[in-house]
């Protein structure tokens, strides 16, 4: 029995492939090099969309965790969604850090610097890795989900810090470009269109990955619960067996002790 893949997820996957193809062709072949950054500007078509998806993933994790913690809306699905989204978020945060580092080397002259934005992003990566590790701890499934949900909400505090760090502190990283008319460096024409296509492409990829991973997590949980149920049944079976054996033993012992008090003749009778 394969998990049913909804037609919507199939359409999302198909659209994601088209948009990824468009991002690659436009980003690597059609868009012109930048007047200042030259060919390096091509990283803009993947780096900000990766960061955007990471934020989207952590936002979803936080909302789903909140819904799990709230007694009125508590359901397994929120915990499962939270875990699936955080995992995809960690992958995209890692890629944001790597692509940022590759961009930083020729632009700033270093692969890494303890800049506020970079440090806060690295912290975000580690926080959600910790969250994923917490989800793997053995124990009661509901207890584990509650702990994970609290951890996800705590980790989410770092998301606005990452976003605002370029405005709050002096940073090597440039300030927002697209939605900041005050910024001298702006993006226009085919470059802006390619960036938008990149954002759509990575969002679609995130949606497809999220729902596919969610299906796997649901099934893994069912198998885990099934395993627990089987173990419990076996244990109960063993306990029942032990109880029967113990009661039989105690019964025969009681009979023997009673008979031993009565004398050797009655013991022979009981044994018979």
């Amino acid at each position: 029995m394969k998990p049913k893949k909804s037609p919507v997820i199939r359409v999302i996957g198909f659209l994601a492939l088209i948009f990824i193809g468009a991002t690659l062709v436009l980003g690597l072949k059609i868009t012109p090099p930048d007047a200042i950054q030259g060919q390096m500007v091509r990283i803009i078509y993947i780096h900000p969309p990766l960061a955007w998806v990471a934020f989207l993933a952590y936002g979803t994790t936080a909302i789903a965790s909140g819904l799990y913690l709230w007694k009125r809306t508590r359901a397994r699905i929120w915990d499962q969604l939270s875990g699936a989204s955080a995992e995809v978020g960690v992958v995209f945060t890692g890629l944001t850090l790597v692509t940022g580092s590759i961009w930083g080397r020729p632009t700033w002259g270093v692969w890494w610097t303890w800049d506020p934005l970079l440090t806060a992003t690295a912290l975000l990566f580690v926080l959600y890795l910790g969250y994923l590790a917490l989800r793997k701890l053995p124990g009661d499934i509901n207890q584990r989900s509650k702990r994970s949900a609290i951890a996800a909400l705590i980790a989410f505090i770092d998301v606005p810090i990452v976003q605002m760090s370029v405005l709050w502190w002096h940073s090597l990283h440039q300030k927002p470009t697209v939605f900041n008319p005050g910024q001298p460096a702006q993006i226009h024409g085919i470059m802006a269109d390619t960036l938008l296509i990149g954002f759509i492409a990575f969002t679609l990829v995130w949606l497809w990955l999220l729902f596919t991973r969610l299906g796997v997590i649901k099934l893994e949980e069912k198998i885990e619960l099934y395993g627990l149920e089987v173990a419990l049944r076996e244990r109960r079976g063993e306990v029942n067996k032990d109880l029967v054996e113990t009661s039989q033993d105690s019964h025969s012992k009681t009979s023997l002790s009673t008979s031993s008090k009565q004398g050797p003749d009655s013991q022979v009778l009981v044994q018979k």
């Binding site: 980003g27 030259g38 060919q39 390096m40 091509r42 993947i46 990766l50 790597v98 590759i102 990829v205």
Partner: peptide, 17 residues
Amino acid sequence: MNAYVEAAYLITFGSIG
């Protein structure tokens, strides 16, 4: 094509793949 750009695209799409 710039080697940095190539590396960034390869790592990104390779990892997602």
